[in-house]
Nucleic acid binder design. Structure first.
Lengths: 204, 204, 204, 204
DNA sequence: GGATAACCGAGACGGTACGTCCGGTCTTACC
DNA sequence: GGTAAGACCGGACGTACCGTCTCGGTTATCC
């Protein structure tokens, strides 16, 4: 696990790294991202500011690492989305899990912070894409391609649009707090995305 | 136009107000929202800082007003979404217009700034909801309800979900710059949202 | 007295200015010049750092002003050196006063600080020359010229050298703590400087 | 030469020591004492910071050693001041040599640095006194005592005052750059110190 | 038409945080 | 055990803005 980090970081203090990530998570929950400061993180972590600037370019980057570390802890990392043979069932399962995650205050605040910082900071966006969003996006596409192969998803569907259709509404409602995040909402979104908004032929 | 502002603002300097909004728009395009500062706006507008703080609570609020003023200028304000009788056609029209708007650099930066600031600032979010998003959301719902009445949209569809399905993907691609905003993309999204992701029965 | 400051400083807070000068004097005595910091002065004075940087270029400049302010307080400022008609008597008087001043802990530390900072900082040196040393030097020269006129000082004496001869030893012993500063020492220096080091002709 | 250092320093790297002293001299001339840093010296010398802190307590101490090393190089070290039998002649000779030394940019900056650091740092002052100033002071006193013995200097003269009278003005003019350092100035000072400021009896 | 009060520009003020430099200590790997 | 390298905690630097607060100098109503 530690060995994963490259040789150039051989002398890096694992203690300080953990303290910084923990402090960042704690503080962002306590005071919000806007009032989160590198100075504050350093103080809370009992660390010199330089130790943060040496390894991260911004408070957003610290937070991204903190979030990644959070995932690594609850290991057995899902390397793949579930595939029971039925797309709708699986998507509901996944979205319900996402609902739970976004309702987890440990994740909610830092994730919200990242979501609003990424469009402002191209460097952070690139890292986020590479380390977090990209891989996840690929998993989603794999699952959708499997569905295409067995005729559960239109063959000519644009997968990026499809992903947006499925995961977008949840994310949007969460980010703008425009409604409660419930398992039922997850189900509704999946059904609507798959079936479309038109009245279903032969219904009623 | 000026008369629209309440009596309490009778003594307010229209010159300063315009200068501030213009300066805000100019600066946010030049330096980005993060480096935009009340101090900078005041300097650029040739105005005292207090004149800004007297009328707006934050730089975000200034920008919101600036954006609203921008809309008021290009008058003939569409008080309603087009209704040709065919929902798909109308939605494509509207989304193509949105595509053009979001490609307009005059609007792009301030809009992006607001989009990332709103989830961080409840007060700004409330104002945004009341002055800009709420009314627009209502127009969209009206158009969708009309479609429901003539059987072009499922009667049991959750309109909030529907709106997210239709307008979400465009907004998301724009905000994260995850692909080009083209008229064709607008069309694809409308079709996908209406028809759903499942293979259409009897197709092929 | 306050009116002496130029119009450009009309809005300057006299309260803050006094607090800063007082804090600087207190701190330099407590912790020494090396550990004196602008940050520390600001904190002690209950003032923002910018308020110091707005009006002074360095901690040395603050200290110089503090010292000048100290002199202004004990008014009745001697605009001229005493002239009783006898040079030796007057010089002893003046040097004994200097001895007392340099033994005053209120003056000792800041003066010592300035003395070591001036050779390092040309800007500070210029200000010091203009505001403090220059005028004093002029007074000394006036007194010595008077002595020349009545034959108590060699007509061809270089006044700069003369001043160094008279005031230098005291200053040197003080700066390097190479011996106690006593009235007797002052007298010895005056006698030696006036009579020279050679054996006096006809003595003994 | 190397053997002069005590046994405890047996393992000390002479290469590093030289590199540090050279780097210190170079840097103090380039950037001035204030901006001279242990970090900078280490980097320039290609040496670890610890190697400096192991052997010297401060940047001032390094500089003092560097200066001492400089003297040791131009060997044939004058263990005694010249004594031709005429004090005035000898003093002029010595002061003219000092003038030349102080005009040497290789010596000027580090010496100036030391001169301003010593009154701030008692430890450095002690070392300076022991290693450099003390011995020199003793040489001066020896020469002056010899002069007293043959009636060229007043028998009751305080030698410390005498030294200050003779060497002080030069040092002061140099430190405060209050005038050019010339051989003529050296001569004037010697004459004035010996003869005193009073008009000479029987002149004219 | 003279008082008066809100608005305005300017910018000083007490603060917070920035991102950097360096101090002095400690650790690692080499020789 | 000395050394090069450099991470570490900490303190201060000088700067940028925050949001509040005078300060005079216009307006622009209202008596």
């Amino acid at each position: 696990m530690t060995a994963r980090r490259p040789a150039s970081e051989a002398r890096r203090s694992e203690t300080s790294r953990r303290a910084i990530l923990d402090a960042a998570l704690d503080l962002v929950s306590e005071v919000g991202y806007t009032k989160l400061s590198v100075e504050g993180i350093a103080a809370r972590a009992g660390v010199g500011k330089q130790t943060i600037y040496r390894w991260w370019p911004s408070k957003g980057a610290v937070l991204l690492d903190a979030l990644l570390a959070l995932n690594e802890n609850q290991d057995g990392e899902v390397a793949v989305l579930p595939d029971s043979g039925d797309l709708a069932t699986d998507l509901k399962l996944v979205l319900r899990a996402t609902v739970e995650e976004l309702n987890d205050s440990r994740i909610d605040e830092p994730m919200r912070a990242l979501s609003t910082e990424i469009p402002r900071d191209p460097d952070l966006a690139a890292t986020y894409e590479e380390r977090l969003n990209g891989p996840i996006q690929e998993l989603k596409k794999q699952r959708l391609r499997a569905a295409q192969r067995i005729g559960q998803l239109a063959e000519d569907a644009d997968l990026d649009v499809a992903i947006e259709m499925i995961w977008g509404p949840l994310r949007s409602r969460w980010l703008h707090r425009s409604g409660p995040l419930t398992p039922e909402y997850a189900d509704t979104v999946v059904e609507t995305a798959l079936n479309g908004l038109r009245p279903r032929r032969g219904e009623g």
